Computed example of a mutant assay.
Amino acid sequence: MNNKSKFSNKFSNLESMEDTQKYIKEMHEMSDRNARITNITFAAVGIPLLIIFTLTIIQMFSFTINLAKGSIDDSKPEIVSTSGNTSNDTSAKDSNANTGNTSNTQGTVQVTSEKLNSKLYTYLTDSKNRTSSLNKATSLNKGNSKGLATTFIAQILRDNGYTISDKIINTDSLVKQLEKDGWEKITDYNKLEPGDVCFTVKSTSGAPSHTYIFMGWVQAGKTDNGYIVDSQVSEYKDTYHQRNISVSTPKKDKFDFFMRKKID
């Protein structure tokens, strides 16, 4: 018998020995235990790490959304709604309105050194103030809620300490009076500030078709729409609402210019 055959017989005898089989079995069992330990270790360490990573991603995503939302909401003034009043829904009518009211006041009296814009804005954030001014304007207009836009804006000015005649009942007379009082006339809507008195493009009469008070942009950095105060309650259900500024719509004229009282 050659050496190779002898080695094969010895190796075969070695594999058949009881101790050898026992040893092999123990090695397999040890390997299985090590595999289970490895799986348990991964579950104990890996799963918590995965949970922490997932929560971190969720928090970062939520923070990004809230930050973006905040940048939009910050531009919107806090306004309390008003209801129960009616007004005009055709702006151009106001420029030709004539109710025959009389007055014993003529207006160039200056308000205090406080910037009028700030007073108007603060006043108009309260729905009770807006309702009060609207009711006074309606009364001046003999109870008629149509063609009230200019009368309403003039009444808001009076309610904030600015002396202006209650004969001011259309946009043309309002512009002329404010110019006489030294107000600035500015056509760049990018310079609008809350409290500015705005006028839209000219109607067929040659006067601005509508007037309102600017309260802020709907979205920061965009000039297409803003928050405003005017008398068009019948259409918007509130004296405070959104309106197109730098763009025209099929029913609403766009901004033409605004007027601002110079700081004393």
Rank of each mutant, 00 (worst) to 15 (best):
N2M: 09
N3P: 12
K4F: 11
K6W: 00
N9I: 01
L14M: 10
E18S: 10
D19L: 15
E26A: 08
M27E: 10
N34E: 05
A35D: 06
I40R: 09
F42T: 13
A43G: 08
V45K: 02
P48I: 08
P48Y: 02
L49C: 11
L50R: 08
I51T: 01
T54D: 09
I57Y: 09
I57A: 14
F63I: 10
E78C: 02
G84K: 09
T86S: 10
S87K: 03
D89C: 09
S91Y: 05
D94P: 11
N98H: 14
T99V: 11
N104A: 12
V111W: 00
T112K: 11
T112P: 04
K119C: 00
L120T: 06
L120D: 06
L120Q: 03
Y121L: 01
T122K: 10
T125N: 07
S127Q: 01
R130D: 06
T131F: 01
L134C: 04
N135I: 10
T138E: 11
N141L: 02
G143L: 08
G143A: 03
L148Q: 05
T151L: 02
I153N: 03
D159Q: 03
N160M: 04
Y162E: 04
D166R: 13
I168K: 06
L178N: 03
E179N: 01
I186P: 02
T187F: 07
Y189I: 05
G195C: 02
V197W: 00
V201D: 10
S205H: 00
A207E: 06
Q219R: 11
G226M: 04
S231I: 07
Q232M: 14
Q232C: 09
V233R: 14
H241C: 12
I245V: 14
V247Q: 02
K252T: 14
D256L: 06
F258N: 02
I263Y: 13
I263N: 15
D264P: 15
D264I: 14
